[in-house]
Amino acid sequence: MSQQRRLIVPQPQLRIILERLAAQLIERHGDFNQTVIIGLQPRGSLLAARLHALLEVQTGNKITFGKLDTTFYRDDFRRGKELLIPNSNHIDFSIEGKEVVLVDDVLYTGRTVRAGLDALLDFGRPAKVELLVLVERLYTQEIPIHPDYVGRKVNTLTNEKVVVGWKEIEGEDNIWIISQ
């Protein structure tokens, strides 16, 4: 079956989206004194790292940043055909009493975020958890999870996949819809 790729957000537009998200975060979290940014491994961490760099420049503060792996908390272990290979966690700080902004690139069924919440709570009890996603696929959530910050909402079909490309890995920042 042939694959069709459709560019939905080119690089200049993605930069504007990232800057808007950073601005929204600053609006709510100020100097990030009590806030930590945590990206979901592997792809959410890339977005979180970008936002983190932007926020540090814009606020002039050091902001705590971590990476969280959800593999061991997933609900499709032993149910899918693929083996779930874990990524590493990088959370060398306490989240106890902190406001956590959980970051992922694409919100689809919501199951990864559910696993992420469980994984996060094993590190302590945050005061508050918010969810930021770059892309929200509409009407596809299978559990009641809704983001607090959204880069772009898209309507998609179930045979489509949303892929966020990053300069570090794919060579260019952009968002694609791939149908197969």
Partner: peptide, 23 residues
């Protein structure tokens, strides 16, 4: 490489993950 991940888990305050909860 999988053991590396679990070594990180068992050195956390909550040393437990739910992966095999149905086994």
């Amino acid at each position: 490489s999988t053991a590396d991940n679990f070594k990180e888990v068992i050195n956390r305050p909550i040393k437990k993950v739910p992966s095999l909860r149905d086994i």
